[in-house]
Design a binder for these strands. Structure first.
Length: 278
DNA sequence: AAAATAGTCAACCGCATGTCG
DNA sequence: TCGACATGCGGTTGACTATTT
């Protein structure tokens, strides 16, 4: 009873063979006319599925298996604060990243946030003993220093580890406009001025670019709000090496500098309040 | 060593928008 | 102008892996 158009649509993971067929199709036709893949019986996949596979996995310029660098994280945080959940738009400022990557990064981060908020700080932190939680327990005592160090030191180290191109956060030109931030410049919300947009466009060095002085009265911590401050206090920006894997020959993480400190240093900081006179 | 928990990633779904006849 | 179709986007889910207890 099935006509050719009614053939079963395959779902789920893509096989190597399917990838090869899709790549071959794009090679011949370019990344468009996705529905003709099915209508021509090349693959039992919908056009949407084919497009998604190409965009998220097969595009040649993707960073596969490379964690977000500190710079990339800062770009995401900054742009999300400015334009909201415009993942595709944010992804255009992260070479090699897709909207799905950005979305996954953000939701993963939100989960962490929710967990921290939900759990009682004392119990959670104590339960982990020596280790990341032990260190992060004391982070509030020196968070500003730590954050500064993350911005200056380990960030660049992480980027270096993710290949040299990671360092260059050059905006991908918007195919529809000459400026990648065209939409931001025309932002109806008025959250970003054209001056700010120009500043963003010209960022070869992300740390400076995302120092967050751009909004009036903003010192960085103010922009991000309570949740972000909570994360910083909880060490989510500084969390352990598990968040950063080898992308090249070197391994660095935004908080690897913490490992250079003796563990008892944190104990010392922890004791500070009780040692102060009332 | 096993179970529980957390984190990551790939893929689907539904909706919005654009294009064309 | 309208409807069909294609494409793009954001939200969500489930499988798999890593880590912790």
């Amino acid at each position: 009873m099935h006509t050719r158009q009614e053939q079963v649509i395959k779902k789920g993971p893509w096989s190597v063979e399917e990838d090869a067929i899709l790549l071959n199709f794009v090679k011949k036709n370019g990344p468009r006319e996705w529905s003709s893949i099915r209508s021509n019986n090349l693959l039992p996949r919908t056009g949407k599925s084919c497009r998604l596979r190409w965009v998220n996995k097969l595009r040649p310029d993707l960073k596969i298996g490379c964690k977000f660098s500190a710079e990339e994280e800062r770009v995401v945080l900054d742009l999300q604060a400015r334009i909201g959940n415009k993942w595709a738009q944010i992804a255009t400022h992260l070479p090699g990243r897709t909207d799905n990557d950005v979305k996954n990064f953000w939701s993963s981060r939100q989960k962490k946030l929710a967990r921290i908020k939900h759990s009682s700080p004392g119990r959670e932190l104590k339960s982990k003993g020596k280790g990341i939680a032990h260190k992060t327990q004391n982070l509030s005592a020196y968070k500003s220093n730590a954050i500064d160090q993350v911005a200056e030191g380990p960030s660049s180290q992480c980027s270096r580890s993710c290949s040299s191109e990671t360092l260059k956060m050059v905006p991908i030109p918007d195919p529809m406009t000459s400026s990648p931030l065209h939409s931001l410049e025309n932002d109806k919300t008025g959250l970003i001025s054209s001056t700010e947009a120009q500043f963003l466009i010209e960022f070869p060095d992300i740390p400076q670019q995302l120092e967050l002085p751009l909004l009036p009265g903003n010192n960085g911590m103010e922009l991000i709000g309570d949740d972000e401050a909570l994360m910083m206090n909880s060490g989510l920006f500084l969390e352990g090496p598990k968040d950063y894997k080898y992308c090249g020959d070197e391994l660095e993480s935004p908080d690897c500098f913490l490992d250079d400190f003796p563990d008892d240093m944190f104990d010392f900081i922890e004791k500070m309040p009780s040692q102060s006179p009332p």
